[in-house]
């Protein structure tokens, strides 16, 4: 190995070169970081377009027995660059013997799992943390991890035939229903 004389600290300190090096080095390194961070933060500008009423099924597909049935919600979905007709979620629909239709979002308000309806127990069961809900969506057990009932959604029966649901997701883990935007 070639031996260099051990360099001494420069006798005459060049404060200008030192300061300028630090400043220039800092600024030019920031440029790619800032450019990247702007793109990284782009999702914060984007708002959910969900919340418009969507035709889910026809009234005939839902017997008036009060038993919840699951239906996919298919709507125009904007996924970054793609625009397509695709499932955006699912709902449980119930039609009471009196003919009233109610809708629940299938997602558990506790942590966002997909809740199953267990017909034998007449109750919804969340497969993740065992939250249970009554057929109307209310929390059925005080020990349930979920802090609120299943999220009800606005339903409209159009022309006496078609069931339209205003599909929305709500933030998981809160006692109140806060829409995701």
């Amino acid at each position: 190995m070639q031996q260099h004389p051990d360099p001494k600290d420069p006798a005459r300190r060049n404060f200008f070169a030192e300061g300028a090096s630090v400043v220039i080095g800092g600024v030019i390194s920031l440029v790619p970081v800032v450019a990247g961070a702007r793109v990284l933060l782009d999702p914060l500008r984007r708002k959910s377009k969900a919340g418009a009423a969507t035709r889910v099924t026809s009234l005939d597909a839902l017997p008036p027995d009060g038993v919840p049935r699951k239906f996919p919600v298919i709507a125009t979905r904007i996924d970054a660059w793609n625009k397509s007709t695709a499932p955006i979620g699912a709902v449980y629909l119930r039609r009471s013997p009196e003919g009233v239709v109610t809708a629940l979002n299938v997602v558990c308000p506790h942590a966002g799992c997909f809740v199953d309806y267990v017909a034998e127990k007449s109750s919804y069961l969340c497969p993740c943390h065992n939250s249970t809900f009554k057929p109307d969506g209310a929390v059925s057990d005080a020990k349930s991890p979920s802090a609120r009932a299943l999220d009800s959604l606005e339903v409209e029966v159009r022309g006496g035939k078609e069931i339209w649901v205003k599909f929305q997701n709500f933030r998981a883990g809160h006692a109140e229903k806060i829409p995701c935007t």
Partner: peptide, 16 residues
């Protein structure tokens, strides 16, 4: 001379 600060300064200006 040492790398710091004169050569570093020249490098920084070149990078800029």
């Amino acid at each position: 001379a040492a790398f710091w600060p004169d050569q570093v300064f020249k490098d920084a200006v070149a990078c800029m």
